[in-house]
Structure formats: C-alpha cells, structure tokens
C-alpha cells in the first residue's frame, strides 16, 4: 500500500504493528543507528534509548520548552518531533555543549548568575539560548525575553536567566 523512498526502506509490518523504521542520527558527535516504532518522539529516543536524560520531559505537548534541543543547529522541541523524520540529522543536547571538561559559556553564565533553582527547565533554557545566540536576532533584554518565551521556568528565575544570556552574548 505504502512505501518509503529507496534509501530508507521500512521493515515490513508484522505482529499487528505498523512496522518499524531504520534510520541513523548524529547526537553530540556520535552516530546512532536506530530501528524505531514510528510513534517514538525524539525526546523519548534520547532519554529511553540513548540514555541522554539531560533533555527533560516537562509537558510533552510543546508548551514548556524543557525538551528544547538543537537539530541541525536550530532550537526545536524534541517532544513534538517524530524521530523517524530526523534520519541523518545532526543533534546537540545539553550533554554535548561542554568541550574537554570545560563548560559552555552559557552553562558557566547560568552558574555565575544563579539562573536556576530546581534546575528542571535549565537544559532546555540553555539549549534555547544557544539557538538564540546563533540566530543573531535578539540584542536587547526585551528581545531576549521575547525570544526565550517558549521556555517556562516554574521557579521564576527569569531575571537571572536573562542576565546569564546577556553575559554569554557579551552584552553590558
């Protein structure tokens, strides 16, 4: 009835299931071949199959930003991403930001500015801020706040989060 393109043939359906799909993703520089039920979100694959639990599941409905990761350099929500659609993608999670034991400047800035309390939203906040800086659009505190509005902090650490991002951007 339905077929995939030649480079990515799905396994035939069996056992009443609609079948599984083979793909590979690059996560933090490591290539992972995967065979997945098409229902798997990228968030669940990262956490449950690749043991990368830094990316958090908050609402699981695209409303909180806790699962923010970078796919091909852009900040997106892992909870609303079907993993099978990301064959060949280059993914960066919070675990991939520090290099050779040295924290990413945003990680360091979050510590210096006490930009979290419970820390649950922090991986998403930091990945989102990495994306914000790469986009190069937000320059003022107002613009940072607006551009970070997809990341909810239940503890209310927002002023310190903005300050940390400003420091990492080299803004006064």
């Amino acid at each position: 009835m339905i077929s995939s393109d030649d480079s990515d043939p799905p396994a035939p359906a069996s056992g009443g299931s609609a079948g599984s799909v083979s793909l590979a993703v690059m996560v933090n520089g490591t290539r992972y071949p995967l065979t997945l039920d098409p229902r798997c979100t990228l968030l669940d694959v990262l956490r449950e199959q690749l043991d990368l639990t830094g990316t958090k599941k908050g609402c699981d409905h695209g409303q909180c930003g806790a699962c923010t990761i970078l796919v091909d350099g852009r900040r997106v929500l892992a909870c609303l991403t079907l993993a099978v659609m990301k064959d060949g993608a280059n993914i960066t999670t919070i675990e991939g930001l520090a290099k050779d034991g040295v924290l990413h400047p945003l990680q360091q800035a979050f510590i210096e500015h006490d930009a979290f309390q419970c820390g649950y939203c922090t991986p998403g906040q930091i990945c989102s801020a990495v994306g914000l800086i790469a986009e190069g659009r937000a320059q003022t505190a107002d613009e940072i706040r607006e551009s970070m509005s997809g990341n909810i902090c239940r503890c209310g650490a927002y002023p310190n989060i903005v300050a940390a991002i400003q420091q990492a951007m080299g803004l006064p």
Partner: peptide, 29 residues
C-alpha cells in the same frame, strides 16, 4: 500506530495520499 512513508516528490505525496484511506501529511508536526 501508523504507517510511515517519506515522499520524495509532490506527485508521489499526492498519489500516496489518494491511495491510503485515513492518511495525513506531516511536515513540521
């Protein structure tokens, strides 16, 4: 559960849709 297929052309996407009752297109998702 659902079948998954990646279309490589507009004509293939439309043909797959016409031949698959209950299917949906997905882009951003």
């Amino acid at each position: 559960n659902f079948q998954y297929a990646r279309a490589v052309s507009v004509s293939e996407a439309v043909r797959l849709m016409a031949g698959t009752p209950g299917a949906k297109f997905i882009a951003g998702g």
